[in-house]
Amino acid sequence: MTWISKDWAMGGIIKGLIVTLKHVFRVGNRPTVTVQYPYEKMPVHPRFRGLHAIDEDACIGCGICEVNCPNSTITIVKHNTRWYPQVNMGMCLFCGICVDVCPMNAMKMTGNYELADYSRESLIYGPDRLLFKKEVN
């Protein structure tokens, strides 16, 4: 007699149909949640881990970030008489350890996540692309 207890009216399907219909006609609080990406961007969280940035005046070129990077992403290179980290974004796993270990708080991470590029070479971000100067106020 199991067939008697079956849901022959297909109540589950009808319930589901009603839910999807409510989505189609936006009944209740059912807004479109996606955005038109290239034209419109989602706000980035303040602690988002994106492309690096290095404070030009604070960095002392100590190399602690180089030593601590789990993927050996960072190499210290010479740039205008001083030594700065160079980051290979193709290998970075965006763990943020380099930011945490920096003794001078020179290493930062920005909200820039649009890092796709055409070649492996252009993924290596030298100091010329990473350095920023803190405004003195």
């Binding site: 999807t20 989505h23 189609v24 936006r26 059912r30 479109t32 949640v33 996606t34 038109q36």
Partner: peptide
């Protein structure tokens, strides 16, 4: 619309 997306828009 069912999946709360826009679909083709461009």
């Amino acid at each position: 619309m069912v999946q709360a997306r826009y679909g083709p828009m461009v």
